[in-house]
Simulated scan of single mutants.
Amino acid sequence: MRRAPQDPLAAAISRPRWRRWAARLPPRWLAGGPAVRAGRGLVLLTGLLVLLTVPLLAPPAGDWLVVLGLAAADLALLAASTAVPWDRLPARTLLAFPLAQMAGLAVLGSATRTVTGAYVPLFVLFFVYVGLHLPPRTAYWLLPAALPLYLLTSEPLDVQVVVRTLVVACVWVVVAEVLAGTVRRQRAAADLLVRDARTDPLTTIGNRRDLEDRMTLLAPGDTVVVCDLDHFKQLNDTRGHAFGDQVLREFGAMLAGSLRRGDHAARFGGEEFVLLLHGSGTGPALDVVERLRQTWAERGGATTFSAGCATLDDVTTAQQALVAADAALYAAKRAGRNRTRSAEAADGWGPRVEAETPLEP
């Protein structure tokens, strides 16, 4: 089957060319997360800008030694960054990237005559990095080190340089804080959109999309349970859809409040719900469903529910277990409702549906 051509615009938005190039790098150079990768990019960008523009300043041979020494230090920093366990360190540890580059520019500005003051605009780039990748107010932590390093990079100290330093320091902080606040709001909005996209609006538990994503994480020993409210259509017809919606809300709330931590409930569609019980096995899963049945009865549920369950093994996929649990559910319906049946695995998940000990209707 030929794959449908991808929209070029969508491809360009989802995977820019620089990301395709970066994907070819060794995995250790991509380790550490986006902020660490951006820190390495900051080091590379700063070093390349200096190396490519220093020749325009015609420095003497002695100045070139300083430039090449700083380039070697950048390479050493990049290599060292691949061995640091960034995920175990505080976020402010990432200040090592801009601080190292500031220190390098300070050495360059103070040790050479031709380069002094040429690269002070790069300091704003370091605060842009802080604003984009570190928590708000981190710029204030960087400022005490940035000011003296900036003065070392600048021309000889005088009143004009001092005033300019105070102005640019305000600009640095404003840029970093505005970016940090914008990033935080965008992330909050993105999290809200993701949560809304994965939540059933009526019951406020997971929806089918959320369920499909979570099913990819199931492992042998996990159990899929499919629950269906009995005679729900009759309930809607006799008492109205508003009452039926309230029953669905109450059932979803009962599931969310009664499952173990790590287990998950989602509305599969209509009055059908799916539970993912991690590491339970068939026997304990049946006990969980029975406790849910008792809790639902104690809350005065307007109707009973039937359930089917299937436990994954080494040759069973999550989707096969879902199909088997659904078949077991309909076996429970045929057996009189208000009961649970389990599906035992056969080759390829036939499935073979076997009745467990019936629960009293």
Rank of each mutant, 00 (worst) to 15 (best):
D237M: 07
R239V: 05
R198F: 03
R209E: 07
H231M: 04
P156L: 03
V174D: 13
V247A: 15
Q234K: 12
T204V: 04
A266C: 08
P201G: 08
E177C: 12
V194D: 10
L275T: 01
G206P: 05
E272C: 14
D191C: 08
A219W: 02
D200I: 00
D228W: 00
V178M: 00
T165M: 01
F232M: 06
T165D: 01
L211M: 03
T282S: 15
E177L: 10
L248W: 00
F273Y: 03
R185I: 00
R195E: 12
G269D: 13
V171H: 00
G269L: 15
D287I: 04
R209Y: 07
L229G: 13
N236M: 12
T216I: 04
G252P: 14
H231D: 11
R214H: 15
T199C: 08
V159H: 09
V174C: 09
T216P: 03
V183Y: 01
H278R: 15
H278K: 14
D222K: 08
D158S: 12
Q234P: 00
G181H: 04
A180I: 09
L218E: 07
V247W: 00
E212L: 01
P156I: 02
A190R: 14
G240T: 15
A219S: 13
D200S: 15
T282V: 07
K233S: 10
E271Y: 02
F273R: 03
V274A: 05
L259S: 09
H241A: 13
L211S: 06
S258E: 12
L229K: 08
D200C: 15
M215A: 07
S280T: 14
V159I: 02
N207I: 02
K233V: 04
L277T: 14
T182K: 05
D196P: 00
L276T: 03
A265F: 06
